[in-house]
Amino acid sequence: MMLIKVLVAGILFVAPSVATAQWAPAEQIKTYTVSGSTGIELYSQIGEKGPLVGDQMRTIAHTDFKLLWSRKYEPQPDGSCKLVSARPSLTLIYTLPKAGKLPDRLKAKWQVFSDGVRRHELHHGEMIVEMVKEIETVSVGLSVPDDPKCAKIRTDLTAKLGEISRRNRERHRDYDRIEMNNGGNVHQLILNLVNER
Rank of each mutant, 00 (worst) to 15 (best):
M127Y: 03
G54M: 14
H187M: 09
L92R: 01
E170T: 07
I60C: 01
G47I: 10
Q56F: 10
R87I: 02
P88G: 08
V53K: 06
L83W: 05
D156P: 00
Y94V: 02
E41V: 11
S139C: 11
R197M: 12
K149Q: 12
S89P: 00
V144K: 04
V18H: 06
S70I: 02
K5H: 14
A86Y: 05
R167Q: 10
P77M: 01
Q56P: 00
N185R: 09
L191K: 11
H172A: 11
E126S: 07
M180N: 11
S89I: 14
H62E: 07
V129A: 04
I29N: 08
I178V: 15
E126W: 03
K5P: 00
F13H: 13
V8H: 04
Q22Y: 10
P103G: 09
Q22N: 10
S80C: 10
V112C: 04
K107R: 11
V186R: 00
H62P: 02
N192D: 14
E136C: 09
A86F: 06
I178L: 07
L83M: 12
G47N: 03
D64G: 05
W110I: 02
G10N: 03
G39I: 04
L157K: 04
D104G: 05
Q76Y: 06
H123V: 14
L12R: 10
P51D: 06
F13R: 13
T91W: 06
E74M: 13
V84K: 05
S37V: 15
T38I: 12
E74T: 15
G141W: 15
K107E: 11
W23C: 07
A15C: 14
I11P: 05
R177I: 08
T38V: 13
S35I: 10
R87W: 02
P103Y: 08
K109P: 00
S165L: 07
R169Q: 13
G36M: 09
P51Q: 05
K98M: 15
A26C: 04
N181F: 08
D55Q: 11
V186P: 00
